[in-house]
Design a protein around this nucleic acid. Structure first.
Lengths: 152, 152
DNA sequence: TACCTACATTGGTCCGACCAACGGTTACGA
DNA sequence: TCGTAACCGTTGGTCGGACCAATGTAGGTA
């Protein structure tokens, strides 16, 4: 976003849910990128590490499906995480098509850092809202997402 | 988004405002792209045409600032719109740095189509919400955006 | 056995946001 | 009035995130 405070887009644009949603998301991704970059990671890294910690070791395929990440992108991200030592990749003895990805101690340490960064972003993002409004916003967005998600 | 309904991301991810916001925005941009593509245009086209209709002829610079579009991107979009005949580009006699962009009759006709498409997207997007909830969502997002916008 | 499916991987595409640099033009201050 | 700063349009990029097609390998099953 480059526009100054004075020069506004047309009213009919400003009033749409889609415009406000897009602007908020833009702001959000910028905050996330900055926050995660400060600890030398990305949103992908966070999501993958968090998934590994919550659900335990998993194949790349399920990591991708759980997070809505394309398998080919999972490859790249796991490459990075493996090289950083945050994750271990080894072939699954029970199914030689799969890799088993396991989070390492270094990985959980990194995850703690990422969570701190993420908390900061949430607070910055929702700063102008009361706690109740923040919950309401999440509730509405969740309803919206769930609805459009169910019907594949 | 590729994940099925069953395989969910970690709870701590799902509960963040940033994740829900990102998912909703993803869904939204997909709907917008489809809706606008159906009338052979893009979101850029809509925003520029709407700005021209609401505020009258303008230079590319103010078009860009009003909509938060980079000047270089404005060039490309105005090229497209001019070639389609939706817009007229002529040098400003009073300031030879500027171009004056004017919407044509064909442009306003196209704008009507785009507005129809956009309305459909809004309805689809906010289908699971009541009218009150929809307004509340827009209100919260607007507050959020305005807040982060004022402080440059 | 033959066939269909799943997995990981390579090598792309597309789009929106953004940046740097430049020539031409105008505004402004010394 | 002259020099410089600021502005405008334009070119030619980068970057990240989402996505897709094709392939080799391995499993499941008729």
């Amino acid at each position: 976003m480059i526009s100054g405070p004075d020069e506004q887009p047309p009213t009919r644009v400003r009033e749409t849910a889609s415009w406000q949603l897009g602007q908020a998301a833009l702001l959000c991704t910028r905050l996330l990128r900055e926050g995660f970059a400060a600890v030398d990671s990305s949103g992908y890294h966070y999501r993958l590490l968090a998934t590994l910690e919550e659900f335990g070791p998993a194949s790349q395929a399920v990591l991708g499906r759980r997070n809505g990440i394309d398998p080919s992108d999972v490859v790249a991200q796991i490459n990075e995480l493996a090289q950083l030592g945050h994750v271990q990749r080894e072939p699954d003895p029970e199914d030689r098509r799969r890799n088993v990805i396991t989070i390492t101690r270094s990985g959980t340490r990194q995850l703690r850092k990422l969570e701190k960064a993420l908390d900061g972003v949430q607070r910055t993002l929702t700063a102008p809202l009361t706690a109740g409004e923040r919950r309401e916003l999440v509730r509405l967005l969740t309803r919206l997402n769930d609805h459009h998600h169910r019907k594949h």
